[in-house]
């Protein structure tokens, strides 16, 4: 974090935040992570809608969903809501 910090002379006007939060990885918050059984998944995308962290991504080229473990906080919502029971939360 400190390598990104500016000194008081370089700080933006009014201290406006300038670094995208995608540089701050929240994926290490949890010891858990979701894994998906591809065979069970019917790509309904509910997991994408319900993920608080935008960590379930729809890859339109591959026509499939992917987890972004850099940001997943292991909350378990996707697994709890998947109508196919395709997602399991496991210890990393």
């Amino acid at each position: 974090m400190s390598s990104y910090e500016k000194g008081w002379k370089e700080v933006s006007i009014a201290g406006v935040c300038w670094l995208p939060s995608t540089k701050y990885l929240t994926g290490d918050w949890s010891p858990y992570k979701p894994v998906r059984d591809k065979a069970k998944c019917n790509k309904c995308l509910l997991c994408h809608m319900y993920c608080p962290d935008g960590a379930v991504i729809w890859n339109s080229k591959a026509e499939d969903i992917e987890f972004n473990y850099n940001f997943c906080k292991g909350c378990g919502i996707c697994a709890n809501e998947c109508p196919q029971g395709a997602i399991e939360i496991i210890l990393k």
Binding site: Y24, L45, M49, P52, D53, W58, C75
Partner: peptide
């Protein structure tokens, strides 16, 4: 659903709302 999923995330990941936060889902 697919069109919605293809829209950009205007609330970027890396925010520090708690794990499982309902407000984060609402904003997204």
């Amino acid at each position: 659903a697919r069109e919605i999923a293809e829209k950009p995330e205007l609330l970027a990941p890396g925010h520090r709302m708690c794990s499982g936060c309902g407000a984060a889902i609402v904003h997204r």
